[in-house]
């Protein structure tokens, strides 16, 4: 898939995500919009996966550690063929398997259950370590939020990934600069991330995480030095919808009817 094709798919995913959050009257739309370009690049270009065999042992792993943006993952997985696209309309409905945080035992393509923050990276370290021990060729990707990096468990995992020389592991930090209640800078500002990850022995790339032409090569980059790779993806919370962009309110706000129309028009126009 060419970059322009990926950009088109990302916009389609944004539109479906917006509709799902609007209809469910809940979701985490800001952090979904910031992360959708990366998820699109992963599932439509980078990851070696077989939607009809979601547990294939040689599949690349992707762990969405910022599990509250599950809706974007569901839409992406559905579009890639892991589940029926029409099922997205059940998001958050009673007894739907598409709840607010992904469940690996119910939703094909989900690798581990996330939701509480700071869980995905340690599990991803285990996945990458397993590949080293068994000689498997799969690559492990994990995406965290930038606010999520405040969880101490991530730094335990970062340290061990370097110790284990996991050059088959890529951590993507969705650096949209906002967490639930405020800007990162006003809360517990771990940025800049590059120097911290480098100090732990990681290779670090910094990209515009909403620019597909930068996202794809960063995800495809392979370290051969025994160092795990961190992509600090500078993104915008609410990317693609002008009035949501970089507004902390849109962490989990639901658009009104009028806002929905404006947002849908903006995304459709871009298509």
């Amino acid at each position: 898939m060419q970059i322009s094709d990926l950009e088109r798919v990302a916009r389609q995913i944004r539109i479906r995500d917006l509709q799902a959050v609007f209809e469910a009257k809940a979701g985490h739309i800001g952090g979904e919009m910031s992360a959708i370009d990366i998820m699109t690049a992963l599932y439509f270009k980078v990851l070696k996966v077989w939607p009809d065999q979601p547990k294939h042992p040689d599949r690349d792993r992707f762990v969405l550690s910022k599990g509250h943006t599950a809706c974007a993952l569901y839409v992406t997985l559905a579009k890639r063929g892991f589940l029926p696209e029409e099922e997205i309309s059940t998001f958050l409905k009673p007894l739907s398997r598409l709840n607010g945080h992904p469940n690996c035992n119910k939703v094909p393509g989900v690798e581990t259950n996330t939701g509480p923050l700071g869980h995905g990276l340690p599990v991803a370290v285990g996945m990458a370590k397993a590949a080293k021990l068994t000689g498997a060729a799969y690559h492990t990707y994990v995406m965290t939020g930038d606010g999520e990096m405040q969880e101490g468990s991530n730094w335990e995992a970062i340290s061990s990934a370097a110790q284990f020389q996991l050059d088959n592991l890529t951590l993507i930090i969705d650096h949209n600069r906002f967490q639930q209640g405020a800007a990162l800078t006003d809360t517990n500002n771990l940025a800049p991330f590059r120097s911290k990850l480098e100090a732990f022995g990681w290779d670090v790339s910094e990209i515009n995480g909403n620019a597909m032409a930068e996202v794809v090569p960063a995800l495809e980059r392979r370290s051969t030095s025994g160092r795990p790779h961190c992509i600090v993806a500078h993104t915008n919370k609410g990317q693609g919808i002008s009035f949501m962009q970089d507004k902390v309110d849109w962490h989990h706000k639901v658009p009104s009817e009028e806002q929905y129309k404006i947002a849908m028009a903006e995304l459709t126009e871009a298509l």
Binding site: A124, V125, T134, A136, T140, S160, F164
Partner: peptide, 24 residues
Amino acid sequence: RLVNVGIAEQNMVGVGAGLANGGL
């Protein structure tokens, strides 16, 4: 095959889950 994560129990349990995901 002895995976010693150091004094880091949260990571230890998460790593265990990941190792199982990788077929171990």
